[in-house]
């Protein structure tokens, strides 16, 4: 699929999903409804769609190529199949997804994998804010599945997260894991600070630099390594517990080597 023109207003296209495409002919797919701003259009008005192989049984793979940055809610609630994006993709990609796989060869905008319950999202570029976070106002955080980002990410990664794994190879901005309840977030790069504010459970592992730890976290011990998904990430790491102002028992692992300014915590051990 490619866009026919450059979109100026957001396009809501939750119908771009392997579950919905599966078993449909090209004509049926072109007739699916999307919202472009406040106009109800059909998919064929906005996108060129070509089908490589028309057969029922095999897993549906959707290729999106071009600038999709204004296209939101792609792959929402999908349970199976695969979406590959060559280019940038808009907000709410894979929102509420339960299974299947999404690969983005480019940038993914905010609310990537919001409230997802299963499946796997891989972003080769960077990503926006609120990764895995629920819709505004909702408490329904990410419950399962995996999000992997090879670039950087924005603020509030894994907000209200309740399960699953988020792995970021680049660096992140403030409030990673805010209000998280369970699950694991691994940051291989640096963190801008305020990690784990309001967290009640789960783990955040920061392998890079962090300017400071919130005062509502207390140091527990120093760990040589952390196990994530069967893989051993070697440290050593300072292990903090918090957020105590929320009676939280979340664990925050911070690399000792990259954060010599945190060595004063050692005297409280």
């Amino acid at each position: 699929m490619t866009p026919k023109y450059k979109f100026r207003v957001p396009v809501y296209a939750e119908c771009i999903s392997p579950d919905i495409f599966s078993g449909k002919s090209v004509e049926e797919i072109l007739a699916l409804k999307v919202w472009e701003g406040n106009k109800n259009r059909s998919l064929g008005d906005l996108f060129n769609v070509s089908v490589e192989k028309e057969s029922g049984e095999a897993e549906v793979v959707i290729y999106l190529s071009g600038d999709f940055i204004k296209v939101r809610r792609v792959g929402a609630n999908m349970t199976t199949g695969k979406i590959i994006v060559d280019g940038d993709i808009g907000m709410h990609l894979g929102e509420g997804m339960r299974g299947g796989e999404i690969i983005v060869n480019g940038y993914a905008d905010s609310w990537l994998g919001g409230s997802m319950k299963g499946g796997r999202i891989e972003v080769k570029g960077s990503a926006g804010d609120y990764i895995g976070a629920p819709y505004r106002g909702s408490k329904d955080g990410m419950k399962g599945g995996t999000i992997i980002i090879y670039g950087d990410a924005g603020r509030e990664v894994g907000c209200l997260m309740m399960g699953g794994l988020i792995r970021i190879y680049g660096s992140v901005k403030h409030f990673v894991g805010i209000n998280m309840v369970d699950g694991t977030i691994v940051i291989h790069g640096d963190c801008a600070g305020k990690a784990g504010g309001g967290m009640r459970g789960g783990r955040i592992i920061i392998c890079g630099h962090i300017p400071s730890i919130l005062p509502t976290f207390t140091i527990e011990d120093i760990r040589p390594s952390v196990n994530v998904d069967g893989e051993k990430i070697s440290g050593p790491f300072y292990r903090f517990v918090g957020d105590v102002s929320d009676k939280g028992e979340g664990r925050l692992f911070v690399s000792k080597e990259k954060n010599p300014h945190l060595s004063f915590y050692e005297k409280y051990l």
Partner: peptide
């Protein structure tokens, strides 16, 4: 104001006669 998540689940688009 308190419940954006309540709105997103239930949207009525406008029609020639009614408002959204």
């Amino acid at each position: 104001l308190l419940r954006p998540e309540d709105h997103v689940r239930d949207v009525e688009p406008k029609t020639p006669l009614t408002r959204s």
